[in-house]
Nucleic acid binder design. Sequence first.
DNA 1: AGATAATTAGGTCGATTGTCCTAATGCGTT
DNA 2: AACGCATTAGGACAATCGACCTAATTATCT
Lengths: 205, 205
Amino acid sequence: MAHGLEGRSLTAGETRSLIVAAADRLFYERGYEATSFADIAEDVGLSRGNFYYHFRTKDEILEAVIGRRMENTRTLLEHWEQDSEAPAERILRFVDILIANRSKIMEHGCPVGTLCIELAKLDHAAQDDAAELFTLFRDWLARQFSGLGRAADADALALHLLMRSQGVAALATAFRDENFIRREVADMEAWLLAQCPAATAPRSN
Amino acid sequence: MAHGLEGRSLTAGETRSLIVAAADRLFYERGYEATSFADIAEDVGLSRGNFYYHFRTKDEILEAVIGRRMENTRTLLEHWEQDSEAPAERILRFVDILIANRSKIMEHGCPVGTLCIELAKLDHAAQDDAAELFTLFRDWLARQFSGLGRAADADALALHLLMRSQGVAALATAFRDENFIRREVADMEAWLLAQCPAATAPRSN
DNA sequence: AGATAATTAGGTCGATTGTCCTAATGCGTT
DNA sequence: AACGCATTAGGACAATCGACCTAATTATCT
């Protein structure tokens, strides 16, 4: 067991967290619809009856998973903001997700993008909540571009970078081409430098 | 009825085509897994039993749908090649899909990209066949870039453009923002001009 | 027209889905 | 020790899934 609480039984909140963590991973790897109650319960090691005690509907689990991702994303972005001083460096952290997570991305795509697409096709009530995950990155990136002296088009630049990362993830999954990821990440980094008005790049715009 | 064959009953091949066309649309709009035999049969107006006469498994339908899309895509690319002389113009045709299909894209994403992602998550046997749809565009675009004098990096440029269109489609679905699509399409067109060595652009590379 | 093949309709199969219920167990408090 | 509450296990529910079969109908050919 990985939770490190073998000595005693779990509180309801802890069990709930284990369920949400398992659902998070399974929704990402297999998709929301393709993941059943039984799949999650088996993954956590619970009976389906016990599972129902914590979550009564599948929509409830989805909401909890999205909430968990929101929280994790907020934490991640805060850490990036603390670790790096320069906005450009922070943005590079975002771009490097594609490299760091390349294996999982080539297998299952981007967790956020694929969830949004699936929920859109299902016309699911939570599709706007899932899109909020994108908004988190969007606003954070826009703030970094503002700090880079591009306040006027910060949101457009943020969307552009998000767009690129989504495109790279999608094609990386289809072609399973790691070199393609590295090449496009390098291109994004070059693009980023070109967007920096006061940067060291001798390129004139 | 839209098939214009009311006067007589349909041959097996015609019924089969209707099934594949309906499955094509439903797989796109709702997703592969979320579309059932009954959904397709009802859409075409057939009984499930009759349906089974034409397709014995769901994988068979998927293969037929992919085959249909392959054929349609080949035809589309050939027409683009016939309608336009200049490679740059042809590439613009590709980019303009995002504008022409913006409504459906904002609802259900890109037909090719979303299918590839879903099949990847299901670890479906046909995922490589679906990726061949991308290859069709990839090779066609690479030929156009070669004709543009960029034979050396034609494939990389083709993948880059594919990547952009995928990214735009994904974010357009999540945010349902038509202005975003138009802005990114304009950016892609500007990028395309910049890639043309003999173009009017005074940019030196 | 009659025989043969192609096509269709309707029903059924076991498995799985999300959802729900009840009985049993664990645990802290008195 | 006994109570009360939180948690769990295991089964059961109707509905739906992909898949399959058979009988009836229609079309085609001799």
